[in-house]
Each structure stands twice: as C-alpha cells, then as structure tokens.
C-alpha cells in the first residue's frame, strides 16, 4: 500500500532556473544563432535600397580572410591590435590591482582612510568612456596642454603628434583602459583576499613566513579562482574594446589602422550600410576567438600542479 511517496523538490529546481533559461534563450541564444545565420547571407543597404538577403554560403568568410595587396589579412591584424591593446592595459591593471588589494587587506599595514582611497581608485570607472576619451584627445592634441608643457620645458620644439604614432596611440588607449578598470579589479581581488581564512595568515605569521612567502604560498593559490574569473572577464571585456579607441581616433584607428579593434571593424560594417552579412561573419569570428582564448586561459591557470 503506497500512500505517500515523499515530496519531490526537483521540480522547484527547474522552476527556479526557468527564468534564466528563458531569458538566455530569448536574449542570448536566439540572437547568437541569428548572427550565425545572417553571416551566410549578402544583406546590406545601398543608400535607401535594401540588397538581399541572398544566400552566399561562406563568401563573407572568404572575403574576411582574403589578404589585401600588401598581403595583410585585415581581421587578423585587428585581432592582433585588440590583443596588444588589451595586454598593454590588462597586465599592469592586474598587477597594480593585486598589489593594492594586498595593501588594503593587510592587517599589518592597516592603512588609514581606506574608504577614501577605494572610492578614489574606483572613480575613473564612473566617467563615461567617451567623455574620458574626449578629455585625453584634448589633453594630447597638437595644441593641447600636454604639448604646451613639453614645448615650455624645452623637450621638443615642435608639438609631438601623439595621434600619428603607433606607440603613443596604443599607449594612451592602454593607459585609459588601465585607469578606468584597475579600481574595479582591486575591489574584486580584495573581496577574494578577504574571503581567505585569516587563521592561515596568522599561522604563517607564527611560523615565521615572510610577506613574500605568505603571498606566494597562501594568498595566490587561494585567490586563484577569483583571479581566473577576473582575468577571463577582463579578457572578454578587452576583446570587445570599442569606445575608447573609437572616440580617441575618431573611428579611424590611426595610424595605419593599428589601433583598430575587432568591434570597431564590426562597427564599420554595421554603421553605414547595415551590412548584416559581413558584420555577422566578423561577430562569429570574434565569438570563436573569445571562446578559444577563454579556454586557454582557464586551462593554463587551473592546471593541477
């Protein structure tokens, strides 16, 4: 005689995750599939006339990977640009953030006015990227204050054209990204460090471990999950870098398109001609690159020693 079978709670699990699944399917999965679908079509606007959609197979991809007269494959060049711009900003960003996070959480240093500093380092993130870029553009323009100082101090007789040199443009973009994001990373890493059991630090201290030893043997290994998360999210954000270089170089990625990022390239196709075919193909490539790189970073950092 079976009277009662015990209450099944499994269905509640499904019910609770349902909103996410539904939202994911509608707002992420469906557009993603649509993008892939679109990338196989010729579909753009010529003035006011709609051309297509006509199925063209892999033509858009072939076009993307066709080298130009100088043998340069554009999309690879822009992938390289994006990665360089990201690394130039992200490496110092994570190192500085790690250092600051350790300072702020150290009970030995016990820094005064922590709240103030945390607010200050987070501040640049609150400024709109485009406004920040405009500010830098004005600061470093040929008749801007930086050049006026350089000339007043006698470092150079003619103004330095910061936007005509590869190193200065890339440097400025990286500097801005660094300034905007190191505060955010610091806060994340601090949360990670504060999540580590304080007993471990005390024990290490009692055993006479130096600060360096404590960092490499305790903080870093236990911080790894948060660090991996930080690096991967920073990388995805970096691959989607757009606003800062777009505004700073007025969409041109000067000089010689060496600061043109993947998303700026995508925007070139979408902006004027609503070229969903080519833009779709570029998006798919970005998706694949992001996937591969995330996997590489995840694997290499999470390797069991």
């Amino acid at each position: 005689m079976k009277k009662q079978k015990g209450v099944s709670y499994a269905k509640w699990g499904y019910i609770f995750v349902a909103p996410f699944i539904v939202a994911y399917l509608i707002f992420t999965f469906y557009p993603q599939m649509l993008t892939i679908y679109n990338s196989f079509f010729e579909n753009y606007r010529d003035g006011l006339n709609q051309v297509g959609p006509n199925f063209v197979g892999f033509d858009n991809y072939v076009k993307l990977f066709t080298p130009d007269k100088n043998g340069v494959i554009d999309i690879l060049k822009y992938t390289g640009n994006t990665l360089i711009l990201w690394l130039l900003g992200a490496v110092p960003q994570i190192l500085v953030a790690l250092l600051l996070a350790i300072f702020f959480t150290s009970y030995r240093l016990n820094i005064k006015g922590q709240q103030f500093f945390k607010t200050v380092i987070y501040m640049p993130n609150l400024i709109m990227a485009s406004a920040f870029s405009m500010l830098f553009f004005t600061l470093f323009s040929n008749v801007g204050p930086v050049n006026q100082l350089i000339q007043a101090w006698g470092w150079s007789d003619v103004p330095i054209d910061f936007f005509a040199r590869k190193f200065t443009v890339r440097g400025l973009i990286s500097l801005m990204n660094f300034l905007m994001w190191f505060g955010n990373t610091t806060i994340l890493l601090m949360a990670g460090i504060m999540g580590i059991d304080q007993d471990l630090f005390e024990a290490a201290n009692l055993d006479g471990a130096s600060a360096t030893q404590t960092f490499f043997k305790i903080t870093l290994p236990l911080l790894k999950p948060i660090l991996v998360y930080t690096i991967i999210t920073a990388m995805i954000g970096g691959l989607q870098m757009f606003d800062v270089p777009q505004v700073l170089t007025n969409g041109a990625g000067t000089p010689n398109r060496t600061s043109m990022t993947l998303i700026m390239y995508l925007n070139n196709y979408l902006g004027k001609s609503k070229n969903y075919g080519m833009a779709g193909a570029v998006s798919v490539i970005i998706f694949i690159i992001t996937g591969i790189l995330s996997l590489v970073v995840y694997r290499s950092l999470n390797r069991k020693d």
Binding site: D74, R257, Y265, M278
Partner: peptide, 13 residues
C-alpha cells in the same frame, strides 16, 4: 589602400 578599405566597408557594392 586604407581609403579603399573604408569605402569597401561602408559601401559593399
């Protein structure tokens, strides 16, 4: 070459 690229991106035809 960069000029042609800009034109190609903006005006596919």
């Amino acid at each position: 070459e960069n000029f042609y690229k800009i034109i190609n991106e903006a005006y596919p035809n």
